[in-house]
C-alpha cells in the first residue's frame, strides 16, 4: 500500500508515503501532528499529481536541514513548504497541508530504516481506508493545481503537469 523510497543523496533517509481515503478524523490527526504524536507531514492529496512530487519536496527538505538552511521549523513543515510554488509559508500550509474537514490525507514519513512500528502507528491513528499511495493521482484537482502553479496551456505541450509542477518547486528560491 505505502511507497518507500530511499533518498539517493542521503542513503540513511527513507521517505514513506501512505494514502488514506474516507478519513473521518482529519482534525484529530492534525492535532496529533501539532503535538508531535505523529512524526510526519500531513498533506492534502488533491494538491498532488504524483508521489514523485513529494519525493522532490522531501529530498530538498533533508538537504536544507543538513546544511542548516531550512525556512521553517521542522523537516515536516519544510516538506509542505517545498511543495508550494511561492515563498509564503502560511499560504503553503493552507494549500498543501491537511485541513480539518478533509476526507483524504497523504502522510509522509522520513525515517532511517524500515520501521514497521512507525507505519502501524499511523494506520492505527487514522480512521479511514488506506489505499495504494500511487492512487493519489486519482484525487488530483487538476484545475486548482494549474491555477496555483500558474501553468500555461503551452507548457503542457512540452511536458506533463507533473513536469511543470516539479520545475516550479525546484526553482522557487530564485524567483
Amino acid at each position: 500500500m505505502h511507497v518507500t523510497h530511499e533518498l539517493e543523496l542521503f542513503p540513511d533517509h527513507r521517505v514513506t508515503q501512505m494514502l488514506f481515503k474516507e478519513v473521518k478524523n482529519a482534525a484529530e490527526l492534525r492535532q496529533c501532528a501539532v503535538e508531535g504524536k505523529i512524526k510526519g507531514a500531513l498533506i492534502n492529496p488533491t494538491m498532488l499529481v504524483n508521489p514523485f512530487q513529494v519525493l522532490v519536496a522531501a529530498n530538498k527538505a533533508v538537504n536544507l536541514q543538513k546544511i542548516g538552511k531550512m525556512k521553517t521549523r521542522s523537516l515536516y513543515s519544510e516538506i509542505i513548504f517545498n511543495l508550494s510554488p511561492t515563498n509564503n509559508i502560511s499560504e503553503a500550509f493552507k494549500r498543501f497541508g491537511s485541513s480539518d474537514g478533509d476526507d483524504s490525507v497523504l502522510v509522509v514519513l522520513v525515517h532511517d530504516k524500515d520501521e514497521p512500528q512507525l507505519l502501524s502507528d499511523i494506520t492505527a491513528r487514522v480512521s479511514g481506508r488506506q489505499v495504494p499511495a500511487e492512487d493519489v493521482s486519482s484525487l488530483t484537482d487538476h484545475a486548482k493545481i494549474k491555477k496555483l502553479y500558474k501553468i500555461t496551456p503551452q507548457e503542457e505541450k512540452c511536458g506533463t503537469l507533473l513536469d511543470a509542477v516539479v520545475c516550479r518547486m525546484a526553482s522557487k528560491d530564485i524567483l
Binding site: N59, T152, Q154, V166, C167, D173, I174
Partner: peptide
C-alpha cells in the same frame, strides 16, 4: 546556476522543450 534554472523555466512556460529541473543545490 541561477540563470540556467531561470531560463529553463521560462522556456518551458513558453512551450519550448527543455529538461525538467528536479533539484538545485546552491552550495
Amino acid at each position: 546556476t541561477v540563470q540556467e534554472v531561470r531560463s529553463i523555466l521560462r522556456c518551458r512556460r513558453a512551450g519550448i522543450s527543455a529538461p525538467v529541473v528536479y533539484f538545485v543545490d546552491y552550495t
